[in-house]
Write a protein that binds this DNA or RNA. Structure first.
Lengths: 221, 221, 221, 221
DNA sequence: GATGAATGAGAATTCATTCAT
DNA sequence: GATGAATGAATTCTCATTCAT
């Protein structure tokens, strides 16, 4: 026939899994885990009901695979990348990390997945632990390392390390949550989701400002 | 307190609806919206399957009512309370607000509801708008007012108001999310949920520090 | 609340389980376990799809309940009954037992259930063990007791007790199997299912004949 | 014998079909008809999913072919063999038949197939008829012939021929059923499956004993 | 002949909701 | 007002079968 795709079966074994995961990612992010039907995933991937089951045991495994293939994979790449910028100052590193994160996660569908992960953590304890070990913990270690080095070098004033890490993370979490919950609802949040990156940078600056040594003598916090 | 809200709470001799909402709140927070069965709500409220339908049209209406009756109601009370502390400094007001929030929301089941609200916003757009109008917007206006006043008075250096509000809000959101998602999973987060209030206060201090005028000569207070 | 006033709908409730089990028994016997759809059971019981699940966890539990309520229950009744005929001879007891069995099991749908049990034993090991403990074992013990007593009294010649029990059981098993497998297929077995009871009695007579002492004294087998 | 059946078995250089049937036999016997997946059959035969369909229309046809090729074929061989022992006594013939049957059917996977056949007869009426015509009927005719001859010769006392045949068959059926149902379940039947052949021989002896003329004068033939 | 990706009808199970009592 | 038995739409998952390669 003249047309390429007119066969009932489009056989793309190698491409299928990632097509399915891609469709699933979008649907999970848009509608949540429970509200996403397997058949919807199949349809969005251009296949029929049964096909996803050829590649994944069940819905839960699809969800796990989506998390693994997107955030976890990206996280590892980011960690590796940041480890090469050893010479930069703490501020520079944190700014670089923020931009990197924004490019590869914050501004992508992955951000919606983070929100979903938070929403569903208690329903998938095993996955939550995995996510914690593979994403949250390494991310926090990386940030902790950078901040601690800054303190050691006198770039930052001493402060509770965990709290600083939380402080650096909170705006990112907020951005992801807001832009994938209220931000998606028409008529909510006209002034919140304007320019998330601007907020993130502003937040980072504010936090770094707070980490500077006061000029005159001040009590350490 | 005003007398206006009494009529609603005076008919407490008929406690059924609020008992149902109370049970629903706990279950929604613990298991999520979808995973909470109507029958579980009924049972937890000490009634039988059909009874909730005598007071609420359906599950969605119960969810909305829960949000309305808990967070929204609490939010309004908090707003009223804060409006009375007009003489305090911006820092003092923000610290007071934080403690108030922590006591009445952050440390209660309501915090779980906020997380749930974020998770389900896209599934209940109407409710999301309501929540945004009744909770998020007023809260931000309140914070915005306090911060703006601080800037006007020279207590804080000028900065993007929306970003500062986001900055003040992010740690609270983070606390709520984490403590009701990963924080509930055994084996996650050994170092995150340690002492949320300490983090919140530390974050506030850090942000306020960042809002101080830099050392160089600037306007006197 | 109280136990007293709810007669009408509760009577319905009480009747449901047995109605469902009754429908299930017939369908299981007719079509086998796998080929019997839950919806068919429901329909045969005059209810809709979901109703059986109000009373039984799942299809497997219905099957187990059917077995329990029919054969096991009947078996226990039979055992109790036979224990009262202590004075009769071995032959008399065995004939009585056969007739009893025929009346209450062999000629009823329960016989089909025995066949089904044999067919599905490996698919439900737990149920098979239960059935073995509650039905097969007691039945064999009962027969064993009667035969042993006959041997002790000199009514029967000595023989391997287990083999005799098998020998007494085999015709019953055969009758049940044949009449619920080939016997149900039109055009099979014109001469097999003629008169099962006649065969059973004939078989018993033949076996008892074989248990008589030969006239001349011969070696025990 | 005739040459007519050769063509089927001569094309054995193409072993595919029989390999598939062999695999199917084992799986059917082990897991039952329904629980045996086509893919499992293919895999056990060392081919892939689609291949069985090159040789058989569908699963049902495979089942039928298995029955045909195993039991039916073996049955015909046995019949032919027994027809050659014309000189022996009835007892001798029956003992020989039993041993033959035990060797080629009772102790092999075919026994499991008999059980399966009984279990599935109503689901495959056409196959049931075929099995009845090709297996059950000839077997009964053979036995009937031997027993009748024994009666005619005065070796056995007169009795209902069909009943005697049933009587001779029942232990074999029982052995096959038990050893492929409860006998396979761990924890069932410690004392049943001990030594099936011993039981079969014992049963035959007992039956033959019952067929002997009583010593004192009894009914004339 | 073989392959194995894809199909899609079908079955089990869940649970929000209704309504006769 | 309350009850709780019953409903039936909705959803997940299975597997015999097909057919392009």
């Amino acid at each position: 026939m003249g047309e390429s795709g007119n066969s009932r079966w489009q056989r793309k074994k190698d491409a299928r899994p990632s097509e399915i995961l891609d469709a699933a990612l979008t649907l999970f992010v848009d509608k949540g885990y429970r509200a996403t039907k397997m058949e919807d995933i199949a349809q969005a991937a251009g296949v029929t009901k049964g096909t996803p089951y050829l590649y994944f045991q069940n819905k839960e495994e699809i969800f796990k695979a989506v998390v693994r293939e997107t955030i976890v994979a990206r996280m590892q790449a980011m960690s590796a990348q940041l480890e090469q910028l050893q010479d930069a100052s703490g501020s520079q590193l944190l700014h670089a990390a923020l931009e990197d994160w924004w490019t590869h996660i914050g501004a992508t569908r992955s951000a919606g997945l983070c929100k979903l992960m938070a929403a569903e953590a208690t329903n998938f304890p095993e996955l939550a632990r995995f996510y914690y070990e593979e994403v949250i913990k390494p991310a926090r270690q990386l940030l902790g390392y950078v901040v601690q080095r800054g303190m050691d070098r006198g770039e930052f004033r001493p402060a509770n390390l965990e709290h600083v890490i939380d402080m650096l993370t909170a705006p990112m979490l907020m951005t992801m949550i807001m832009s994938h919950s209220f931000g998606l609802v028409p008529g909510c949040c006209e002034n919140i989701t304007r320019d998330p990156l601007a907020f993130l940078q502003s937040a980072l600056r504010l936090t770094l400002q707070g980490l500077q040594y006061p000029v005159s003598q001040d009590l350490p916090s």
